[in-house]
Design a protein around this nucleic acid. Structure first.
Lengths: 144, 144
DNA sequence: CTTCAATTGTTGAATATTCAATATTTTCAA
DNA sequence: TTGAAAATATTGAATATTCAACAATTGAAG
């Protein structure tokens, strides 16, 4: 039986929040070299496959809710990183695409992100990293 | 060598964000029964030791930055869950304490949170959970 | 001692996020 | 075929967060 008086630092929810906050902070720091928030990097990366993604799909993929995504996309369209196309098969939908400018930026961001992953591998270890990834994936799976 | 064209779902930062989002959403759902955001539960839990905690310490412990914490504490003071005392040893500091009312609420919240942890244990497994916790702690350690 | 830098917490303005309501299009049952 | 319900994206108002500036206190060097 779980103890209700356990310190907060022993709760899974807290450990996840703490780890996420720290890793995200580090990534943020790298990406700030290009003046881009983490969410925009995610968006560019998802759109990098060249396919059109609806706003709904994209929102799920980049962990943002719809209105937040809409407004972030507005900014990215202003910056000419992505563009909207109405889905010809279902005109309720908007398909998002990455622009050439977006692709160029995405490459730079990818190398900054890889830089971070390598840094983690060094200090945290190869074994631990892949084991952690495996466990996280499995946790996410079991939560659906 | 890490691949820069790896899908975003393979990045540790993304997996952490995704897992954190999901687990936090579940916890939020439970705590909403008492109308309390997750951060307030964390605050109450940290203050449950009965000691006075400065705003700075508290901000670190509950993963909020200072201005956000100040404003959340303002609300909690209005709700009579916590109270401020000026630190007699260092009058720049404010020491936060939990009230009796806060303690009562905290107990209810704890059992809701334990409920969630038990639910995770069931669907995700005892072994995986403790192994994941261990790896997260170690990741956090190695990031300092 | 005095003064200047560092620490601590709060405030207000700027920014971002969220919730509820809306508009548009599609689906599907009658 | 029509009309109601569902799906999709956006908008605007309400709310929350963040950044930079501020005030108060302490520490420490000269």
């Amino acid at each position: 039986m779980a103890k209700s008086n356990a310190p907060i630092t022993e709760h899974l929810a807290y450990l996840l929040a703490q780890a996420n906050r720290e890793i995200n902070r580090q990534l943020e720091l790298r990406l700030s070299k290009e003046g881009v928030p983490v969410e925009q990097w995610r968006i560019l990366k998802v759109l990098s496959d060249g396919d059109g993604h609806s706003m709904g799909d994209l929102a799920d993929a980049v962990l943002l809710n719809h209105p937040t995504l809409t407004k972030m996309i507005d900014r990215m369209v202003s910056d000419a990183l992505v563009y909207r196309v109405q889905d010809p098969n279902d005109r309720r939908k908007v398909l998002m695409f990455i622009s050439d400018r977006g692709k160029v930026l995405c490459k730079k961001l990818n190398s900054l992100a890889v830089d971070q992953e390598e840094h983690i591998l060094e200090s945290y270890g190869d074994k631990s990293t892949s084991e952690l990834k495996r466990l996280l994936e499995s946790l996410i799976d079991s939560s659906n």
